[in-house]
Amino acid sequence: MSPEISIELIIALTAGAALFGVGVYGALSQTNLVMIMMGVELILAGAMVNILAFWRYLHPDVAAGQMFVLIIMTVMAIEMAVGFAIAIARFRAKGSVEMEEAVDLKG
């Protein structure tokens, strides 16, 4: 082990932070359900980069780091499946997936 700071780790974490920021902007600013899902995908992608970077540069001997990346990929797939199911149900019922028109969902 070396105590030096890894420039590669910092670059990867910065890229992950940028993806997270872009994802937060997308998820909050878009009015269309599918576009909101794209924002959530970018947020999860940012998390995935961070976990992989931590595994690669800090604990490459612990395979659980790779396993967490697989779990995030699973979460991405589930988010897509459930999100599109809600989108189809909404489209069939109301003819649109615009979330500004979904005021009837407000509690």
């Binding site: 082990m1 070396s2 780790l9 932070a17 931590f54 690669r56 540069y57 001997d61």
Partner: peptide
């Protein structure tokens, strides 16, 4: 997130991979 990435001491970097 960048502030956390830059200012936190992440400990020793692995040299073997």
């Amino acid at each position: 997130a960048v502030a956390v990435a830059v200012f936190v001491d992440w400990g020793p970097v692995a040299t073997t991979f």
